[in-house]
Simulated assay, not measured.
Amino acid sequence: MDVNEIWDRFISLLSEEPGIIAAEWRKSAGIPFLYLDTVSTDRKEIEQKIKRCAVRAMRGKRLNAETIFVRSGKHEWVYRHRFYVPQEKMFCCGNLCSDCIRFR
């Protein structure tokens, strides 16, 4: 699994969303940023579109997505967005955790 393929699919899905004019991602200092040009000025609506497209791009993969608002202009939005593999326990610690390796 290549994360660049996930990013490409994610950006293409975002670009097809109604209300989003342009979407691109760039890395700055090793941190991926998502740049959006939109028609809408509603932050919740934009974040719902990002979440919906991220879920569709990750379908069938064991990934999580994290999106953090950075700044906005008139119709420009910048988010720190990343796809990452969740960390899992590799042994039982004996504390009866709900995500214990024994319950698999």
Rank of each mutant, 00 (worst) to 15 (best):
M1Q: 03
V3N: 07
N4G: 11
E5M: 04
D8C: 08
I11M: 01
I11Q: 04
S12D: 13
L13E: 01
E17P: 01
E17I: 15
E17D: 13
G19F: 05
G19K: 05
G19S: 08
A23P: 06
A23Q: 08
E24A: 10
W25S: 02
K27W: 10
K27N: 13
S28K: 14
A29D: 12
A29R: 11
G30Q: 00
G30R: 03
I31Q: 08
P32R: 10
F33C: 03
L36N: 01
D37H: 11
D37A: 12
D37I: 02
D37S: 14
V39P: 00
V39F: 13
D42V: 15
D42T: 09
R43L: 14
E45K: 15
E47N: 11
K49R: 15
K49M: 15
A54K: 06
V55S: 10
V55E: 11
V55H: 06
V55Y: 08
M58R: 04
R59P: 05
R59H: 11
G60F: 06
L63F: 03
L63R: 08
T67P: 06
V70W: 00
R71W: 04
E76Q: 07
V78N: 04
V78D: 03
Y84S: 13
Q87I: 11
M90G: 01
M90C: 07
M90T: 15
F91Q: 06
F91G: 09
F91T: 12
F91K: 05
C93I: 12
C93S: 12
G94K: 12
N95F: 12
C97F: 08
C97K: 14
S98G: 03
D99H: 10
D99V: 07
C100L: 00
F103I: 10
